[in-house]
Design a binder for these strands. Sequence first.
DNA 1: AGCCAGGCTACCG
DNA 2: CGGTAGCATGGC
Length: 222
Amino acid sequence: MNNIHKLYKQLYKTYGSQGWWPIMGYGYHKNDYSFPRDKNEIFEVCLGSILTQNTTFTSVVKSLQNLQNIGCLSVDTIEAMNEDKLKRAIKPSGYFNQKARYILEFIKFYKSLDGGIPTREELLEVKGIGEETADSILLYGYNRLEFKVDAYTKRVFTHFALVDEKAKYSDIKYLVQDSLKECIKDETELLHTYQEFHALIVEHSKRYYSKKPYGRGCFIKL
DNA sequence: AGCCAGGCTACCG
DNA sequence: CGGTAGCATGGC
């Protein structure tokens, strides 16, 4: 068992199943890996992945709630929306001018898929979708084996010297994927581990890696 | 009051 | 290529 897997095990033992991705009207689904269940929920994950860029998820929930309240929480309804109305609805998540454009750009791409599964390369060509958002969509929307790295992940990994300060997104992503693949041979279990690991890192980091000095109070031992 | 949040693009050297 | 300003609201 390598240090990455050790970290995962300790986090899971501490916090348990996180049940990401949360879906509107259902919330988290701990120990239930049947999500997303349909195309609407897949799209909701994509939407949430864009809205949550550099923002807390509670703000994203407000935006999604706003959309739901005006009956616009679906691909076609958002596509048909007046852009200013869309901006008003997603205002709580911040960067609403950019994000409104990103969402509309993504919808064009999403419809061109015609129900198909996007590749990572295709997603990265869409304006507003960088590596983390692409992996978020793939991991939680399409159940693909693409680990999602975020600022917290880098912070925690740096704390434990699993990577150095100048590690790039891909360095961390493939370190995690390679490390977990060594220990977990079953693909379904591996997928759920990717999904839970990222969520667990966020849960742990909100407590111990949000304000400086990062890692104060962190009880994990590798 | 100031810092941080489940980042990305554009533009710089 | 790496580094950074700008984007914006909300919570603590």
